[in-house]
């Protein structure tokens, strides 16, 4: 659970399970709460992502970013190798994006904040569709992919960044009694 992280409570907990937490949360794969809950102290619990979800969500952004930078390099240099790099980076990004979408979909059933989960999922859906169109654009020969390819690469990079931001900052804030 490397990516699962939370702020430690100030004191040791007294009870293993917090009664305010719904039961599906107690056993959630996402919610690695352990036994450290202090009933007496107000605390903020930042929920970590499922590590697989985290990896593919971050990968989506990173790979789309790589594609956008490669597109820029092609535009600046006319060196065709950059366009080829971009094609493969987009293909890889789509794999991550698709998996991240599936993770987000399952996350809807477990997440504390469904609204954020839903937004993340929709962002990933849009970035996947635009990314697929971008892959087809990048399949055009030589300069035919420009400038649409670069524009789409930038758009999907931003979408993936926002999706990752939302995914990694999902918090559950509550007051304990």
């Amino acid at each position: 659970m490397l990516l699962s992280w939370r702020r430690k409570p100030a004191t040791l907990s007294l009870n293993a399970h917090d009664n305010n937490v719904p039961p599906w949360h107690q056993f959630s794969f996402n919610d690695f709460r352990g036994s450290a809950v202090n009933a007496a102290v107000e605390y903020t619990h930042r929920r970590g992502l499922n590590p697989l979800h985290g990896v593919v969500l971050a990968g989506t952004f990173v790979l789309f970013l790589g594609a956008a930078l490669s597109d820029y390099a092609y535009m600046a240099s006319y060196e065709i190798q950059w366009a080829t790099f971009a094609s493969w980076l987009i293909a890889s990004a789509l794999v991550c994006n698709g998996l991240a979408f599936v993770c987000a979909l399952f996350g809807l059933f477990t997440a504390g904040n469904r609204r954020r989960g839903l937004i993340q999922m929709l962002l990933l859906l849009v970035s996947f569709l635009l990314g697929f169109v971008n892959a087809l654009i990048h399949a055009m020969d030589a300069w035919a992919m420009m400038p649409t390819g670069l524009i789409l690469s930038i758009i999907v990079t931003i979408l993936a960044l926002v999706a990752a931001w939302i995914g990694f900052t999902a918090t559950v804030t509550r007051k304990a009694q």
Partner: peptide, 8 residues
Amino acid sequence: NSNITERG
């Protein structure tokens, strides 16, 4: 060696 220079 290409359709339209896509191999450089």
